[in-house]
């Protein structure tokens, strides 16, 4: 594994496991705090008209958050240096997380239905008892 090129061994050395070097821990910490500064900076310092573009601003904030999350998962949580079994569990969970959002397709596509549904109550994401029946 490429990550083991610069690895150190656990004490005793009988069972080698990757030890994240101190320099790497500091480096990742720098990346995390820089990401935090970038998140706050982007929220307040990006000029118009980009600043009022909700999609751009939210995408930027999430991109920075995903970058930070990758640093934590990949290095601090050791997925980069983990066995294949660990990687399957780690990646599987996060892939499931993004798959979950396919559910949004239902809500996004509701206005595109070619014919009105048989329910008299208009489609809404609110709980049913908060939507007034027009009839």
């Amino acid at each position: 594994m490429a990550g083991h090129d610069h690895s150190e061994l656990t004490k005793g050395g009988a069972h080698p496991h990757h030890v994240l070097p101190q320099g790497m821990i500091f480096l990742i910490a720098g990346g995390l705090f820089a990401g935090m500064a970038a998140t706050i900076g982007a929220a307040f310092m990006i000029p118009e008209p980009l600043h009022s573009n909700t999609f751009f601003m939210q995408s930027l904030a999430l991109a920075i958050a995903i970058f930070k999350a990758c640093l934590v998962v990949y290095f601090y949580m050791g997925v980069k240096f983990g066995t294949r079994l660990v990687k399957i569990f780690a990646y599987g969970g996060f892939i499931w997380f993004f798959t979950l959002f396919i559910m949004m397709a239902d809500y996004v596509s509701r206005p595109l239905e070619p014919v009105p549904g048989w329910e008299t109550v208009p489609s809404s994401a609110l709980p049913r008892n908060t939507v007034e029946d027009p009839e």
């Binding site: 150190e8 656990t10 004490k11 005793g12 496991h17 030890v19 994240l20 101190q22 821990i25 990742i28 910490a29 290095f75 601090y76």
Partner: peptide, 10 residues
């Protein structure tokens, strides 16, 4: 992360 590092180093 440092705690794990030092734990691995004993």
């Amino acid at each position: 992360a440092f705690a794990v590092h030092f734990a691995q180093k004993g």
